[in-house]
Design a protein around this nucleic acid. Structure first.
Lengths: 342, 342
DNA sequence: ATGTGAATGAGGTACGTGCCTCATGACCTT
DNA sequence: AAGGTCATGAGGCACGTACCTCATTCACAT
């Protein structure tokens, strides 16, 4: 059980002074390429890794992470924001400063502006929740070039310069919903699918997984829809009411988007709540109420607290080794029934 | 956004020297009660909290946590042990040293001996997985008096001096199994319950939740058992085989203990795998295989990685403020189908 | 040969805490 | 009054890193 290597060890091994190691580690100028290589080699050989805590203490500035969370869209985003608030104090104890900015949902312009306004001297890492917009992609690229680590949350932007994505596997979530509904309805039947908007990557992926799994494993179940409710309470309520009215034999509903308050309203108004198997996404006030009343059977959840926890851990890991990939816990899909509500 | 308070601030506010603050903070002798109170008051007023990282750095010794994990019992314990190994490296980066000791399962004597052997100068925190045994309870009491923080993992010992329990709500897990099986079998039917040993608190709690929820919500389902398989592969296989032979109309099985390899064997040997709805506990090689083949429908999991993560976080929090309770994330019950296997 | 600029070394201070030594003063015992 | 004990202050060194200044070395161009 040996001591961890320190900058002193690296300096000794590379045959250079502490100052040179420091220049290499922090990307400061004034080091010949050959010398830098010697230092890199020593670092690799010793398995040196900067002590993040000592580092943050020495520079007397906290690691700063800025979260851009959509505003005014849905309850899930609010619970993400709350999760950030909840972690702020304990993060501060680890020398991390969490900054949260709410930006108008789906307003690519505003988000890009926010990213552009980040000063790398005051912000080490940005976490964004965004749909796939060219303006955002290029703002991420620019931030990355300025030396800011960017991560995507909830919905990924695979083509961008983001270093990491934090969120669930939405295709698996869709498959899971199918697998549960299939088992809930051993006799088969009609199941309606309600989405927010299929232009949203996460919604599209859930649908993909759902249709694939249902088709492969439960051919006795037929799908009605998808119908888009735009994550909106009244619109979703209207859609569900119409579905219930048109299909007296509807056996199940999978709402892969938001707007769950509307879903529950329509179910209860129809008098058929509890008679259909219903699966929805994200634990919020509405879906909790639905689980308790029996209107919703299962809620698939992204676990906002876990996502924020991982985002913070990833920010630390990336601050440590800007380039390399760091191991990370995957975010698991939470499955909630009335019986295991937290 | 103000700076965090430091020992210097506390000393100034209390009108004493740094040395005195240090004596109070670290419980060293040589401080009059009246002076100590002044310091405590200043700490409370400033909301001072020791900077754990600087502290660990200064004393040039890592926070050391010893895990006592049962050996030779079942795959779940192995995956707990693996989770400890997996976290070791990253914990070291945060100045925590994880030490793992496997002790013979259900050997209270050995576990108590291990606890008694812990030297508070070399071990700050012990994490134990244990059934309810007087010898263990008193060893925990003794360790606590020596200044070692003790936490229980997986199975709690409510009467002991343990500072915290880390694990799932097993009653809720049992209810969840019932709720799923109830929905899987809308027509009702016979469901068999297999346990390891009802002397184990976690097994008893799962059974309690299962019976309560099934009785209240799904009266059309009748329970056969519980039968005890002692978490043993061959014994569990024999029991399941007998159940299947005796009840041609068996509609489901809930195995709330271990021994899942035997469960899957018996199911496949009977040719009825896939025809019954089966719920088991803990993601292991056996249950994964069962999920993939379709012999098992759902696995309820404790998430060993999450438990170890929380144990580490709790150890840090408790090192910081020995007395006070620190907020902590609850461990959620993982629910896995073939479709969301990680 | 001399100047120029870049590369590097040497060494300091700081961050917040733990732990050590030594000096001082107060109060008590004999 | 002398000696002892105890509470406290003052200060230093250490941990691992960041960042600063200043001096020195070396290569290259003039």
């Amino acid at each position: 059980m040996r001591r961890r290597a320190t900058v002193h060890d690296v300096a000794r091994a590379a045959g250079v002074s502490l100052a040179t190691v420091d220049r290499v580690l922090n990307g400061r100028p004034g080091v010949r390429a050959a010398t830098a290589e010697k230092v890199e080699a020593a670092i690799a050989q010793l398995g040196f890794s900067r002590d993040l805590n000592a580092s943050l203490m020495a520079r007397a500035r906290d690691l700063s992470v800025v979260f851009f969370i959509p505003d005014g869209s849905n309850e899930f985003m609010d619970s993400l924001a709350q999760a950030v608030e909840r972690r702020s104090a304990s993060a501060l104890a680890d020398r991390m400063h969490l900054d949260m900015r709410r930006v108008r949902a789906l307003d690519a312009e505003a988000l890009a502006e926010g990213l552009d306004g980040l000063d790398p001297r005051q912000c080490d890492c940005a976490v964004v929740v965004s749909s796939d917009e060219p303006k955002v992609i290029s703002a991420i690229e620019a931030a990355h070039r300025r030396g800011i680590v960017v991560m995507t949350l909830v919905s990924d932007l695979p083509g961008s310069a983001r270093q990491r994505f934090i969120g669930i596997d939405n295709v698996a979530a869709g498959r899971t919903a199918a697998s549960l509904l299939g088992r809930f309805l051993p006799g088969g039947g009609k199941v309606a699918v309600v989405a927010g908007s299929l232009h949203l990557r996460d919604h599209a992926e859930r649908l993909e997984g759902f249709e694939a799994a249902l088709g492969a494993e439960f051919p006795a179940i037929s799908i009605i829809g998808p119908v888009e409710g735009h994550d909106e309470r009244t619109e979703t309520a209207a859609i569900v009411a119409r579905l219930l009215a048109r299909h007296a034999d509807l056996a199940g509903i999978y709402n892969l988007g938001a707007g769950n308050a509307g879903l529950v309203e329509a179910l209860e108004a129809s008098g058929r709540a509890g008679a259909l198997r219903v699966i929805a996404h994200e634990l919020t006030a509405s879906t909790r109420a639905g689980l308790r009343s029996g209107a919703i059977d299962v809620v698939l959840d992204q676990n906002p607290d876990g996502e924020i926890r991982e985002a913070i851990a990833a920010a630390r890991a990336l601050a440590l080794q800007a380039g390399r990939a760091a191991a990370a816990d995957a975010i698991e899909i939470g499955i909630f029934l009335r019986d295991n509500l937290r």
